[in-house]
Design a protein around this nucleic acid. Sequence first.
DNA 1: TATGAATGAGGCTTCATTCAT
DNA 2: TATGAATGAAGCCTCATTCAT
Lengths: 214, 214, 214, 214
Amino acid sequence: MNHSLMEEIVKYSKKTKTTDKKQRVLQAAAQLFAEKGYANTSTSEIAKKADVAEGTIFRHFQTKEKLLRSILLPFLKESLPPLSEDVFSEMLASYGDSPESFFRALIKNRYEFFKESKEYFQILVKEFVYTEPFQQEVKVLFEQNVLKRINDAIKRFQEKGEITQSIPSEILTRTAFTIIFGFFFTHMFLQNNEDTPIDNEIEQVVQIIINGMK
Amino acid sequence: MNHSLMEEIVKYSKKTKTTDKKQRVLQAAAQLFAEKGYANTSTSEIAKKADVAEGTIFRHFQTKEKLLRSILLPFLKESLPPLSEDVFSEMLASYGDSPESFFRALIKNRYEFFKESKEYFQILVKEFVYTEPFQQEVKVLFEQNVLKRINDAIKRFQEKGEITQSIPSEILTRTAFTIIFGFFFTHMFLQNNEDTPIDNEIEQVVQIIINGMK
Amino acid sequence: MNHSLMEEIVKYSKKTKTTDKKQRVLQAAAQLFAEKGYANTSTSEIAKKADVAEGTIFRHFQTKEKLLRSILLPFLKESLPPLSEDVFSEMLASYGDSPESFFRALIKNRYEFFKESKEYFQILVKEFVYTEPFQQEVKVLFEQNVLKRINDAIKRFQEKGEITQSIPSEILTRTAFTIIFGFFFTHMFLQNNEDTPIDNEIEQVVQIIINGMK
Amino acid sequence: MNHSLMEEIVKYSKKTKTTDKKQRVLQAAAQLFAEKGYANTSTSEIAKKADVAEGTIFRHFQTKEKLLRSILLPFLKESLPPLSEDVFSEMLASYGDSPESFFRALIKNRYEFFKESKEYFQILVKEFVYTEPFQQEVKVLFEQNVLKRINDAIKRFQEKGEITQSIPSEILTRTAFTIIFGFFFTHMFLQNNEDTPIDNEIEQVVQIIINGMK
DNA sequence: TATGAATGAGGCTTCATTCAT
DNA sequence: TATGAATGAAGCCTCATTCAT
């Protein structure tokens, strides 16, 4: 039930049969990019952290930018969709089928995911802002996978009369998504690393969403 | 009523009586940092855009990083608080005193602000993530000003019985803030530049928050 | 009467008001390029020889290739034509006006020029082979200046009946040019640096050309 | 009668019984060196073009420079001398025994050879200029083979009274050689790839040489 | 014999910063 | 105050060469 990005990436990379050293470079780069940003991380630093010669990085990835993409794209393109599928069915199975339990499960589950892969999301968000084409790719991925599934669930709840039908499901979806992911982003940026118990807060957000949609 | 960051910065910089050239450097740097990020902007580019010798930048700001701070901190430290004060009193005056109108006004007003100063927020968000001490400063600023005022308003609404008293105002505030700013961040990152009319969405978020808090 | 390429370049560079350091870079680079070839000379070597920081090279020339062009093109474009003019009039004035004396003077004069600027011609010839567009530029320059003037002289000698009129002047010119410059090239490549007295040989070539053209 | 360098190299390499892969490396390298120069061709490029692993190159040739020598030296050392022998006897046999026909045949024959092996000569000329010891080797080879045979022919014509005896044969030889090879070099560098008919020009050069030597 | 991953020295270039004018 | 030439550290990347398989 705990689908960390790290695990996903490891899975992915095993599929494509990467060398040990290639793996180490990917891990080191991911960590450093998340910590200090792409532009502030030098290839020599990556090499040192991966305990590899600098040339090795370029033998495997040709370019620093391709290294970045090798960290993000495979994850997004191949791991996100199936992951979401899993998550959604698991969620519905174990948490019951009311809107409350759906959103509570969604938020809790994704929040765990988020927290564990904070680094990778940081890379995503940061490098994201500048590169137009990449932005589009990611956006489409999110919409076609995550948004679509939330929308499906909301439509089902609307049919069962558990959520208001006076507002189109698309708008409800977009709003819910914005609130939930906004909640995560805000936490990603504003939260100290102090382990603040935020269960209260999550419950609060769930209540607000549910009430707002009834 | 239209408080763009740009205007705020201009106001601020006039106060400190900067030279023409210093001004031009600030403007050019702000634009470039927003567009391409701090790390991807060179001082020579800034000099060219400001039509100033490169040395001039360093005469005024000593360091590229101090230049960044000269763009962000003055705005945050001296412009945000009074701005918020204005905004809040204006808001309450012109929009009536129900929770609905308060949040609606808050979101609409801040959204305009956001949209117009998107660039400056981009600088803020991007460079933000990395520099620990800076993060703290900004966080405190936000909490002490914006959060505090929202909290004051909520407490007042609680006293009037228009918002539930069974949840501490601090939690309600934090949740509302998270939802609202999360909403903005999400739009900042995920929205195409197409001018999508989002009035629906704003209204939606207002309703959800209100319902959730009643 | 002694027109070394080196002197020409110095003249040229004074016109364009170059810094001392820029000058030193040009000189060092010219020497090294001639000695070891463009591809085998590193910018750090140039910097060391010019006693300049490596960055200085790029401040002035942006690119290693632009540095190469800054050595060759100015010389070719601005120094060659007037130079040739001088040379030709001087030659005709001081050597008398028979075909023999003309060719003898031409070869001797140009051979001196060649010997002293051997380095620069080496750069020219070597880098020449690869870069198509550059090749064209140089070729046109040579044809429009040197060839044209030889052709003028030959036509005059034909009119005076001192050279056969049964062959078009263009063919005679091309042949003479090919022989003369071929003679130089061959010496450039095949000659040891031992100072072989080649006056005999020059006289030989003059005789052969003259006899062949009578 | 048509002795292209390519054919010669193929012959040579067959003699020394090289592996298929070694062969392929030699061919690929020769092509690339001619096209882009030694310094601008990477061993990985050669490996790719030869469809061989990069390590294979070094197994066979140890060093990139030894690879270059493996292309040029065998040709020069073992193919040039017998080739010249053939050429000269063929020439004298089929073109008759006057100085005119000798030089005409020599130039035409060698010009064809030149044209077809332009690439290989480009390698020779280019890499040549820099490496002192190599230069000597090649120079000696040329002198001991080509020059010697021309000298022999000239001496014979002098004995028959068909060429002036007032000039030592060595000087005549050197001059003729310089003119002929200079003619080729000049064409190699200055000629566009347009197929200019140069028969006129060749005839012209022959006449000039002959007249000059009578 | 053949491979190709790994290496690390060295290449070109950028850039924040200094300083003499 | 303003300039811009000069600096040199550091960045990304290429490449000949080695070596375990």
